[in-house]
Design a protein around this nucleic acid. Structure first.
Lengths: 119, 119
DNA sequence: ACTGGATATTGACCTCTGTCAATATTTATC
DNA sequence: GATAAATATTGACAGAGGTCAATATCCAGT
């Protein structure tokens, strides 16, 4: 038996798709992939992701991230939650600090899928 | 003298960025790249793009695209306009028909940038 | 020119989302 | 356990965005 759509991991949601030049996406596939893209399609979240990605090990503490923005702490927390819940960032708590880490596999698959729409 | 931010083409907007694992994006870079991602981050537009991409030559007539959706003609037209104005699709009119074509270079650059956030 | 078909624009409606202030939760330290 | 610091949650608000009906524009053929 196959997993229901809801249970699909983000990797599976993206890995499902053949190159876009070979076959159009179904509505359901587009729905799941666009959920990932929505999470990325915000300037603050994109910069947050790049900050995390450029840290050693692709991991960074929230305390390091907040300083880069002129935004309230709840707002940064909100954006990190979106990135985490979409499956683009992993979250781990150590003591009082929370670390976010890039899901390299997800970002790699997603990037390849987008590139596949070109030649 | 360098171009103002407004004048940057979509390709330039994306090609500007070093891999995300090497250097975090600036606010301005994130702003421009997220504009492209916003255009992609809709299920209908993503499926539209995949339909165009999977046609011969990466080009398709609007007449071929509308049928795949249960949406009004103005809505499809609106989504195509968003994809075109963001720089993801080229537009050309031949007689009464309008053809949209994928900007392979833009999609390739964008995909590589996203993948660069992984290892 | 007139008619018909293909696509675009306008204006309105409703939902979704980014932001903040205030408050809550968790954890280390005293 | 009380306090302080780091992060998350809640609730409210304003602005952005997807959708449609109605209308406009553009082009081919008669």
């Amino acid at each position: 038996m196959s997993k229901s759509l809801i249970e699909l991991t983000p990797v599976e949601a993206v890995a499902c798709c053949t190159p876009m030049t070979r076959e159009p996406m179904t509505g359901a596939q587009a729905e799941r992939v666009s959920a990932l893209l929505k999470a990325l399609a915000d300037p603050v979240r994109l910069q947050l992701l790049s900050l995390v990605a450029s840290h050693e090990g692709g991991e960074a503490c929230v305390c390091d991230l907040s300083e880069a923005f002129d935004l309230s702490q709840p707002t940064i927390s909100h954006h990190l939650k979106v990135l985490h819940q979409s499956g683009l960032l992993d979250r781990s708590k150590r003591g009082v600090w929370v670390y976010y880490k890039v899901r390299a596999d997800v970002l790699d698959s997603l990037g390849k899928l987008i590139s596949s729409a070109g030649a």
